[in-house]
């Protein structure tokens, strides 16, 4: 009996690794999806985008990199498709240099798929250092920060940018967040210029953003793979995130079970001592 408890309180880490690997791989191969209802904070984000008048400008900020790609990249594609389908204009920039091209790759891919034109329906501004300073100065005049797009073309020669000067010309800001840039967007663009913001974030930072949602500083919060899956359900196009949620369920059950087993071993061993 004692040996048994000792063994379950000391499972080799490689066995746990193998469990995790199998727990992710098999659900992906079987491609079985579970039904579930979207979270309320995701639904309000979706409804807000649905309520925007056609032709409105949406600023999209890429504040993540490949380290959190599976959580945010599929969601970015789904949201861009939704924005273009609703005939909204997309202005993209970013604060995380290493991930910025991910945003551009998705933008070009979806724009091509939906037949949108660069400079008319969407534009990619690129990156400038100094996060908060960039956000503040866009509130005055976006040309003060980006007088050219990423290729050096003047904003005034791009039809989409002709009437865009500051936040009052931007109906919505969507920030894709893997760190603290979301806080800067809220603290400067929302607090000072009353910009409407939806934050979509990796699961790591999502819990920290709930206070903003309750305080109505942001109009929607889409967190982690779950939020992405919710959004896929709302736009009625189930994809990567939805399929991934099955693996997520299996692994979460495995981890909770491991914690429980670890504790059984721990409590038993403590009694023996």
């Amino acid at each position: 009996m004692r040996e048994f408890f000792e063994r379950i309180s000391k499972i080799d880490r490689r066995i746990i690794y193998l469990l995790v690997f199998i727990g992710v791989t098999i659900p992906l191969l079987t491609r079985k999806g579970f039904e579930f209802k979207p979270l309320q904070e995701v639904e309000t984000a979706y409804n807000f985008i649905e309520s925007l008048p056609e032709g409105s400008n949406v600023l999209v900020s890429i504040d993540y990199d490949a380290a959190s790609m599976p959580e945010l990249q599929p969601l970015l594609e789904v949201m861009l498709r939704h924005l273009f389908r609703r005939n909204l204009k997309v202005i993209m920039l970013g604060h995380w240099p290493l991930g910025l091209p991910l945003g551009q790759i998705a933008l070009e891919k979806i724009a091509k798929e939906m037949g949108r034109k660069y400079g008319e329906d969407y534009v990619f501004l690129g990156y400038r250092p100094g996060i908060a300073a960039v956000i503040l100065n866009i509130g005055k005049e976006i040309r003060g920060v980006f007088d050219v797009d990423y290729r050096g073309i003047y904003l005034d020669s791009l039809p989409i940018m002709r009437n865009v000067h500051n936040y009052s010309d931007i109906a919505l800001l969507i920030g894709f967040e893997a760190g603290s840039v979301g806080d800067f967007w809220v603290q400067f663009a929302q607090a000072r210029f009353n910009q409407k913001i939806i934050l979509t974030s990796t699961a790591v930072v999502t819990p920290d953003l709930y206070p903003y949602y309750q305080a109505k500083q942001i109009v929607g919060l889409i967190g982690g793979l779950r939020g992405a899956a919710d959004y896929e359900i709302l736009v009625k196009k189930k994809g990567f995130a939805y399929a991934g949620m099955t693996a997520q369920t299996i692994i979460h059950i495995i981890i909770v079970a491991l914690i429980l087993i670890g504790n059984i071993g721990y409590l038993a061993m403590r009694r023996v001592r």
């Binding site: 499972i11 880490r13 746990i16 690794y17 469990l19 995790v20 690997f21 992710v24 990199d65 490949a66 380290a67 959190s68 790609m69 599976p70 290493l98 991910l102 692994i251 495995i254 981890i255 491991l258 914690i259 087993i261 670890g262």
Partner: peptide
């Protein structure tokens, strides 16, 4: 992208083991 993404995906294994 594969390098950075895989580097961070290792954390999935580590967090499972650490939780246990």
């Amino acid at each position: 992208v594969p390098l950075q993404a895989t580097m961070f995906s290792l954390l999935a294994f580590f967090i499972a083991s650490a939780a246990y």
